[in-house]
Design a protein around this nucleic acid. Structure first.
Lengths: 240, 240
DNA sequence: CGCCGCATTGACGTTCGTCAAGTCTAGTGG
DNA sequence: CCACTAGACTTGACGAACGTCAATGCGGCG
């Protein structure tokens, strides 16, 4: 909750290949550094922002892992996404000047706070930043299209396969293994994201293990047969 | 398919209160007029753009009704949204410079073609346009969060109720009735959007009719008890 | 008038949710 | 060091919701 007044620079951040400054030239990078007002540490289970809070900034994840979720009036919540280092959060707040979901750290994390008025100001001058901001928002729209496809037309196995492949692919882009990963979220959170109950998630994991597709030991997952998972995601009609 | 070289102006469009120029001042409105290169007519069942096509423009709907859908590799497609007059299409294309979904007219339509490079150029100069573009993209992200919630945690009745209320609310903002609407899409398309099969959509309509909540005659729907539908959307836990 | 696409309805099957019991693990305190 | 506990996870039995398949109805259009 306490903003840290540590001045930092994108230009020497090790996430710069994956984060806000993607595709910017060296001089542009220098200007982007002004964007980041402060960094902020968020402990596990703490929220970065909440539904209803005033929107003022976007957040770039430096370290750690987040979930975003919408709370329904009746107390349940739907996880709308999982975010890792280099990804941007807070885009939901722009429309109404209020956040419409919660961002919760699933492990101790640190984010760069980017005041949105500064982003708009700077992207009026730096064309490539402007375009990059548009791309980030468009990417989120396309990602959500994918989730809609998943929720609207896939069966449990297909959903979990798509989820695992997506996670491991994003982790791989960050230098982690292509086949091993540690889940930062509970079965219930996975289920919420995938539109399934936690028991179904658990059973589906067990089924993958039986079939020799993955090894699962609590939150540690090793993918043994990527092709089999990929097959599930593509060949949705196999059930006929 | 044939672009019409009709020069038109936002400043005297009757959709200007709902479309691109929302919240712009009179002099700003003048400048926005330059945005619209051409208009384009799209006949029923024709596509405005397709998955894989090069992205160059956003489209504002002047008249008519569209669906956007993603085709899966195995031939099925998932409807990701329905769009009506004043709404913007094509945002999915910005990330990769290629469209990632199809836009299909469900009735004869006309759209304003807005070259995206012009939008970026102009929004570097007109601050309020810049902010408006950001809002439009953020609104789409929030809308999709809502769909994810619907697909991930609602039952068939709740989904259809939310769908009808959303449609009628948007139509009402355009001067149509609060209680009557004509569906421009088939049961199958509704089902695809809501993650249900067409038979389930049909049965759910029939159930609403039995309960006296709506009247349905083919594609003509009259909502008799808005509160009952609203109740369904909110009180998801009623099944306990 | 007859055809075709869309919609409705019924019977049946599958998938997933629900409820409940039981297991595993990490963290705590004696 | 080990017993204890709480939270997360697994597994089974059962039922509800929705999908599937198939027959039938309806309405618009050539």
């Amino acid at each position: 909750m306490t903003p840290h007044a540590i001045k930092v620079a994108c230009s020497n951040c090790n996430m710069r290949e994956l984060c806000m400054p993607v595709g910017l030239s060296e001089p542009e990078l220098q200007r982007i550094d002004d964007l980041i007002g402060t960094r902020r540490k968020v402990k596990r289970n703490e929220t970065l922002f909440r539904n209803g809070e005033k929107f003022s900034s976007l957040y770039a994840i430096r370290t750690g892992f987040f979930k975003t979720c919408m709370a329904t009036e009746d107390g349940r919540d739907q996880v709308t996404g999982f975010q890792m280092a280099g990804e941007i959060m807070g885009l939901d707040g722009i429309v109404n000047d209020f956040h419409s979901c919660d961002a919760v750290a699933l492990e101790d994390a640190e984010v760069c706070v980017m005041p949105f008025d500064k982003i708009e100001e700077l992207s009026r001058e730096v064309t490539s930043l402007q375009h990059h901001v548009h791309k980030i928002m468009s990417r989120e729209i396309v990602r959500e299209h994918g989730v809609m496809l998943l929720l609207g037309s896939m069966r449990a196995e297909e959903r979990l396969a798509a989820f695992l492949l997506n996670l491991v692919q994003r982790l791989h882009a960050r230098g982690f293994s292509q086949s091993e990963l540690i889940l930062r979220m509970t079965r219930e959170e996975i289920g919420s994201y995938l539109g399934l109950k936690l028991e179904t998630v658990s059973r589906t994991f067990s089924k993958f293990v039986e079939e020799g597709t993955v090894e699962v030991k609590q939150r540690h997952v090793r993918i043994l047969d990527t092709a089999a998972l990929q097959q599930l995601v593509n060949n949705q009609q196999a059930c006929h």
